[in-house]
């Protein structure tokens, strides 16, 4: 298994860069993964990542895309409650890319 180095600490990730141990996550780890993904974390990015992490804590899975868009729409205004906005933030797909940055497992299956 590969590792990433954050603040002098070595953290195990899988072949695709998802954290192996979710407890290894920190904001610095998130910033590091985002950098590897060519993203710089803005406040808007954090809104999404934090929502994903809260939802995960309650349900042990990332929210469905529709649940996510609805929540973001409620919080940030209807113009942002759509997948176009989320894809602008996370070009590789809000579910997968935001999960990776949030230290959550990758959604699997036909998605």
């Amino acid at each position: 298994m590969p590792n990433i180095e954050v603040n002098g600490k070595s953290i195990e990730v899988d072949e695709e860069g998802y954290l192996v141990n979710l407890s290894d996550w920190s904001e610095d780890v998130a910033n590091h993964i985002a950098q590897v993904e060519n993203l710089s974390m803005s406040e808007s990015h954090w809104e999404v990542v934090n929502f994903l992490r809260d939802y995960y804590e309650e349900f042990q899975i990332a929210p469905a895309v529709r649940v996510l868009t609805k929540a973001i729409g409620k919080k940030l205004g209807a113009d942002k409650g759509n997948s176009t906005y989320l894809y602008e933030l996370f070009p590789y797909g809000p579910a997968k890319q935001a999960c990776k940055i949030g230290g959550l497992p990758k959604p699997t299956g036909c998605v």
């Binding site: 349900f59 899975i61 497992p105 299956g109």
Partner: peptide, 9 residues
Amino acid sequence: NNLGLPGPA
């Protein structure tokens, strides 16, 4: 399920 979606979710 394939997704790993638990009952409550």
